[in-house]
Nucleic acid binder design. Sequence first.
DNA 1: ACTCCGCCCTGCTTGC
DNA 2: TGCAAGCAGGGCGGAG
Length: 284
Amino acid sequence: MPELPEVEVVRRGLEEFTTGRTIRSVEVLHPRPLRRHLAGPADFSDRLAGQKFLAPARRGKYLWLPLASGDAVLTHLGMSGQFRVQPVGATDEKHLRVRIRFDDDGGEVRFVDQRMFGGLSYSEGGAELPAEIAHIARDPFDPLFDTEAFVAGVRKRRTGLKRALLDQTLVSGVGNIYADEALWRAKLHYARATDSLKPLQIREILRHAHEVMADALAVGGTSFDALYVNVNGESGYFERGLAAYGQEGSPCPRCGRPIRREAFMNRSSYRCPKCQPAPRNARW
DNA sequence: ACTCCGCCCTGCTTGC
DNA sequence: TGCAAGCAGGGCGGAG
């Protein structure tokens, strides 16, 4: 569900509420979100008690909370994960999975996840960058993002452009929504063959992905429903900024043609049939 | 080595 | 009304 802008909104919210605080206890209410922590929920809780959080970090859609010990709590929101800050004693959310209490009088942090594609794990030595996500590419907001390596990587692939944009080992943070929006802005069809794109076109699609995610971040991200909210339970406002995604039948903001929805990768893709015509040598 | 599919979950919407 | 299928913004493991 959440892509880079939404995860960054959550990171900023957590930064305000967790940095410098010491954990008193961690309560795991469902084992599923701890599946990546192979030693099990009890071990996860035991290791965290008494530890102090440093400022949270993010790469793409992954988020981690470094600890003063040099380790980290690594998390991913999956499709429906949320972090919420609540006063101690507030009613439990229906899908509350993990509760973190602190040794001060402030509120608690809760991991809430309806579908449980998200989760948490304890990353030893992961404060700087958890080894578990070393394969994830830097995202476009990262000052060390290597544009030329991205251009070369995309051209080396033999696949469609949208598949490449969604491949988190080429560029991270882009999901189905912002891939469609970036493709619309760049006037490129999702099935354009990666190995026939010009370097300039690849730089352009990357620039648009960066810009559309920055635009979304500036207004708190995209929320279609209550499944994406910030740590205070508030929605973002970028849904009104979407030109293509979810806009089937609505006029293209550029040319007026109705936006088309098509099945793609067991999901949906939205495009303007005039601005983003199907290529001859399509790769799906 | 690279690419792609199926699957992990729950709940809301849609159509019969 | 009731039920089942379809769909939802992600990532991984393993098949080919």
